[in-house]
Design a protein around this nucleic acid. Structure first.
Length: 567
RNA sequence: GCACCUGUAGCUCAGGGGAUAGAGCAACGGUUUCCUAAACCGUUGGCCAGAGGUUCAAUUCCUCUCAGGUGCGCCA
């Protein structure tokens, strides 16, 4: 049982003994807004005053009087209009810290049956990944990490855009303008150049569109030559994406792109027509929704081709058969909200009732407008990573010039990529974000380098203490300073916060948490020397700091960011 | 026109029924013979867009208004 649950149980028991069978609102614990109001608090008395009758403070008095002697609670106080403020025993805190590892936590109360399938990143073939792909990629990855941490089984699926009209265009451009030499040297750049060239040229030469449709049709009909080209484009693109993912420390379990569902879509249309969910309208197959909360959704075009919604439905159909689905999570930007609401609704009409979540966020753009690969005003992820790592490297050179060069490089890589990921993950924006180099590449304040630095400093004093892990781990906890107790109390909240973050799909909850923790650690670090303290105090401090650092590392890990022994 | 998202300090953002609304940056003032100053401490800065409603309690929930963004039948 998690710490909060144990505590709730104690209070719940008291509530039952006092108020017996009356239907009460549940007893919920919350973190105290301020530690002077205790370590936990509950508004049970206020919430239930109407049901029980009498004023909240009296109810609180009766509840507190009924609490049995227990190992967790030091004392309770009644405050303000009827808050019950709960203070935890030092021995209980110590006991928690000593047993603080994921393995020892019991998350079995979570509904972990089946697979959580998470769709994220999903770039379109033949274009380099740019910062528009960053959010989906890192948020999706963090969601996966959180659920794995809690013991769920996850499937990370990269639903790549490997089918559709862009291939007709690309094949036409390939025949007209391919630069062999460049294609050999940097295939992805050449493909991208071809795509831009096509988009620019088609404005003055509309006949290209007819050619593109023709090539697309050939591809769709299985033409050998075009199919090989198509496969080649995909291979080139995936290789390129692999480099970005590897630098970001991101991986997937499956790469079922849109083309994977090609042969599965006709069946969906049949089902929709059979169940009278879809109808024919002006040559299209279309779903109209009752009421007008949602615009109608075309699932097959006049020319017989399928659409995005069709492929997503086929995807759900496939997953229901291939997996034991717990839920499906889609991470995309908020412009696609209508699309998701539409096909979720259609799935529901089909009786495909597995839980589906659309996790959306605002897009990143320049102050003067949106990114567009066609206009060429994009920042490639590779370039962003390079720049960030370079800046990190410069700072290391300045702060720590004596480190061996290889270590400088590896530190720069961890710090540089971490900073970019953290920038995105620490925000909870469902509105648009204006891209700003200085903000993204900041290494001070609420950033991952700040947290990594905190970690590295504590590692340093731990090394210098000369004490073994064992010796530190078995230290007796003595709260020498108030801030040390504050740190320990925050650690009590950690697992519950991970659950909260996972359930709301909000990695920024984790980012906030570890940032707050890092601030406290730095504050303590600065205020009181560890190594020169009296032996038992020193051991206690090191134990508390190391426990906190473990949570820092775990928190960063949940964001997909690494820690360093020194930096 | 309809739908969705957003509006919190000069700027960028947390918070999301509960006690005195928080960070970072910027500005200003301090801290190093001492464990990594990528740090720490302090000061200044708020009608939580506006108006109603629900509630013991609203910045948070509901309704309306205003402002910005996004989407709306054969793109993905």
């Amino acid at each position: 049982m998690l710490f909060e649950q144990q505590l709730e149980l104690v209070l719940q028991k008291a509530a039952v003994s006092v108020f017996g069978t009356i239907e009460l609102k549940p007893l919920l614990l919350q973190k105290s807004s301020n530690l002077k109001f205790g370590d936990f608090q509950t508004n049970f008395a206020m919430v239930n005053s109407k049901i029980v009758g009498g004023n909240p403070r009296d109810i609180a008095v009766r509840l507190i009087a009924a609490i049995d002697e227990n190992a967790l609670i030091e004392k309770c106080e009644i405050a303000g209009p009827g808050f019950i403020n709960i203070f935890i025993r030092t021995s209980a805190i110590e006991n928690f810290l000593k047993n603080m590892s994921v393995e020892k936590q019991d998350f079995s109360f979570l509904n972990r049956k089946g697979d959580i399938i998470i769709d994220y990143s999903s770039p379109n073939i033949a274009k380099q990944m740019h910062i528009g792909h960053l959010r989906s990629t890192v948020i999706g990855d963090s969601i996966k990490r959180m659920y794995n941490f809690l013991g769920y089984h996850t499937i990370a699926d990269n639903h790549i855009g490997d089918w559709g009209t862009q291939f007709g265009k690309l094949i036409v451009a390939y025949h007209k303008w391919i630069d062999r030499e460049n294609y050999e040297r940097s295939p992805i750049e050449e493909l991208e150049r071809l795509y831009v060239k096509y988009s620019q040229t088609v404005e003055s030469e509309p006949e290209l569109e007819i050619q593109a449709r023709f090539e697309l049709k050939k591809l769709q009909e299985g033409d050998g030559y075009n199919t090989n080209l198509w496969k080649e484009f995909i291979k080139i693109s995936l290789q390129e994406y692999g480099k970005v993912y590897s630098r970001l420390g991101i991986s997937f379990d499956t790469f079922y792109g849109e083309s994977f569902y090609n042969d599965k879509m006709p069946h969906v249309i049949e089902l929709l027509l059979e169940k009278k969910i879809a109808s024919m309208d002006d040559g299209t197959t279309i779903v109209f929704f009752e009421g007008d909360e949602l615009p109608p959704c075309i699932v097959r075009k006049k020319d017989g081709a399928f659409l995005y919604a069709t492929s997503d439905l086929a995807c759900i159909d496939f997953r229901r058969k291939a997996y034991d689905v717990n839920r499906m999570v889609y991470v995309t930007d908020d412009r696609q909200q209508n699309h998701f609401r539409q096909f979720f609704k259609i799935a529901e009409l089909l009786g495909w009732n597995e839980q589906k979540e659309h996790v959306y966020f605002g897009i990143m753009k320049f102050s003067d407008g949106i990114f567009s690969s066609r206009k060429g005003n994009v920042i490639k992820l590779m370039d962003l990573l390079d720049e960030s790592v370079k800046r990190a490297r410069d700072i290391i050179e300045e702060k720590n010039p004596t480190l061996p060069p290889e270590e400088k490089d590896s530190i720069a890589a961890v710090v540089g990529t971490g900073a970019i990921k953290y920038f995105d993950l620490s925000q909870n924006k469902t509105s648009n974000i204006i891209f700003d180099w200085e903000k993204v590449l900041s290494f001070e304040g609420n950033t991952s380098p700040y947290i990594q630095y905190t970690y590295a400093r504590i590692q340093s004093i731990t090394r210098k203490s000369g004490l073994s892990r064992e010796e530190i781990q078995t230290a007796k906890v003595i709260f020498d300073e108030q801030i040390e107790r504050d740190i320990a109390i925050q650690l009590l909240y950690f697992y519950q916060e991970v659950i909260r973050a996972s359930e709301s799909y909000k990695p920024n909850i984790i980012a906030d948490f570890i940032y707050e923790l890092a601030k406290k650690i730095n504050s303590l670090y600065n205020a009181s020397p560890v190594l020169t303290a009296e032996e038992s105090i020193k051991r206690s401090k090191l134990f508390i700091l190391n426990s906190a650092c473990e949570v820092l590392a775990q928190g960063l890990e949940l964001l997909g960011i690494g820690v360093l022994e020194r930096m």
